[in-house]
Design a protein around this nucleic acid. Structure first.
Lengths: 216, 216, 216, 216
DNA sequence: AATGAATGAGCCTTCATTCAT
DNA sequence: AATGAATGAAGGCTCATTCAT
């Protein structure tokens, strides 16, 4: 009638705690493996390194994609948060912008799967973490008003992130510092010195027209 | 009376002369398919869409990789050349730079396989066409002396190309004009207005001589 | 009420314990198929006749060659052992020799793959079971000292085995008893009655020490 | 290739002579290739080394097997004839037998395809050349009457040939002289010294009962 | 709830044979 | 009559997913 004393149960019958523990072991391992090898990795590799069987893995994540999604969502958030923190810690608005990119791009290099998923994000914007990132960027924009050239949008800064992220990825192996140069160039191009208007983003099939980016 | 117009013959089934035609049909189809799906395509797909049997495909290209290489080399060269031409046609040095990127990036979006291969280029520089591209960029640098900010290297411009190329690719589906904004930003960042030195690229295996790399 | 008789379960679909069962089913089937068709069999044939899927087969034997090796090693040993047993059971040394060949050759006929592998053994002596066989033969030689003609080596007897084995194989279908005649002839030729020295085996890479090889 | 005087005809229109010439070139090349690599050889290899196109090859030999048959028949005859000649040249009946085997077995080593085909001969006795060989052996038997142990049949000697042939083949690479020992042993076992009757060849499915082998 | 064996569609490649020129 | 390109059915192997215990 009362709550069953767990003391009583056989040690072998871990009730639910272990299921959660397993789930997290899987996620953690998958995060590593996906970062290393990208989404094409063999599911067996994840199961083996997690120390669980295939059945357990598939009980928690019925499809490989479910696991990948879960992991990426988590990693994405963590990544976005670390970038946000870097921005918050900065002394002035422009440093915030710079540090944000520095931090975000540094993290980007270690996550092959995030890179892959990010590349798909624009056409399939299901990654919820993207919203967090956008919020951070919007905040950065707001803080840097007057320092940023006119007309720069959140999407501009987001795309710049992805764009540089790719540069980081491909140079990570042999020229690990090279991307800093590109970042500097791009950020300089974002300064308010440049008063010429940016080209319109007038694609016919634009999802959402956004002449002005509201500061939220 | 004259030699029959080859235009007339059915595209399939024709030896000798049309073996070449077949070969080119394969290459052309493969170019499309590789652009669409990347290098992981099923060879059968290429064969089917080319209208040839597996054997024919493998007669011309003993390994899948041979086909991919052939196609990519060709596409890469064509792409680089079209970008070069755009640069040549430009009126002034800066327009040359701008037009080069415009043209190159426009072409980039439609070639998933080129993107894949390009991403590997830095670590495995086997794609000969890369050299062509570098030459073009070097020339652009030379012409734009005094307009470019000091310290900008060929590799910087090349990496910028790849970086923006990625942006083009991922926005191509839903926001096909957005990347122009990023390009403008980056190019503005490359102008000689910006006199602050770029961060050093302290990787040991630098390919290009860098005229002056200030230690910051 | 008691533990379910494993005998009762369907042969297919059963993990753990029956994984072993499956493995052995594969090996058994493969042994049959390899005996019938040699090493060129389609792996699918083995899978189908084993009642398992391709994946199962490849789980147990990552390469076709692994399966073939495993099966052949086993079959080879079993075959060698049965021949050895026949020799042991014999009443006198000469009968041992005779019975050894009888038994060995009887088994040989049904194993195309063993034949194939045996044919390669001389140039590529990787089949460990060959050593066992050699030991048996050496023992036979020792026991039959004084009955065998001088100069006969282990290799002579081994080669005779292979040689007759071939005869057995090709006559197995239509004249299944014919090889006994050849065996009798050969064994008679091995008797000590024949005192003329055998021709030298002047190959440089002799494996076995030869007591006395007269130069004829 | 075309040496024929085509003085009159257009050079391109070799009439029939060249067809024959081609056919023979194919056969000759195929003989080499089959001897080297056995019947699993790629037809292209034969075509290429013959200097003819696939179409030509297949015009002359609609199936690969047709070519193989033609070649083997020819090679088989040539081989049998050379062995017969060796027998004829011998001084006495026993030497005839010995030299016959010597010659036949020496030739055997160089013909992988003959070996393969010979192995099938007993179950599929379509190889006409086999008849020739049998005639030679019958003649040898007749000449050696009184020297051979009683009851030895043509088929015994033929099977001995095949049997030793296999030994020759597998030792050809590393112990090229070893088979002579086996030959000596077998021939000694065939001598009339051995008066014990050979086991009967009483297979139930024997094609032709042959208690006595008439000396023709 | 966990395990890991089983499944089988799908991928790259080869080669005997056919066919248009 | 010759040419060699084209064909497509296999064959070896992988891996996401299911299933019996």
């Amino acid at each position: 009638m009362a709550v069953a004393e767990p003391e009583n149960t056989t040690r072998r019958r871990a009730p639910r705690v272990d299921a959660i523990r397993n789930r997290e072991a899987i996620i953690e391992t998958a995060a590593e493996v996906l970062a290393e090898q990208g989404t094409t990795v063999d599911v067996r590799e994840i199961a083996r390194r997690s120390g669980v069987g295939m059945g357990t893995l598939y009980r928690h994540f019925p499809k490989k994609e479910d696991l990948v999604d879960t992991v990426l969502r988590k990693e994405f958030s963590r990544w976005a948060e670390s970038a946000r923190q870097a921005a918050i810690d900065a002394e002035d608005p422009w440093a915030a912008l710079t540090d944000f990119y520095q931090q975000a791009l540094s993290g980007y290099a270690r996550h092959r799967a995030i890179q892959e998923r990010f590349a798909l994000t624009w056409s399939a914007p299901d990654l919820e973490g993207l919203h967090q990132l956008r919020l951070v960027i919007e905040e950065l924009c707001a803080r840097a008003t007057g320092l940023l050239r006119p007309g720069v949008t959140t999407d501009d800064l987001l795309l710049l992130l992805v764009s540089l992220g790719h540069a980081v990825q491909i140079t990570d192996g042999c020229r690990p510092h090279m991307w800093h140069r590109l970042l500097r160039i791009s950020l300089d191009g974002l300064r308010a010195d440049h008063r010429e208007p940016l080209p319109a983003d007038t694609a016919p099939d634009t999802h959402q027209p956004r002449p002005e980016t509201p500061k939220r």
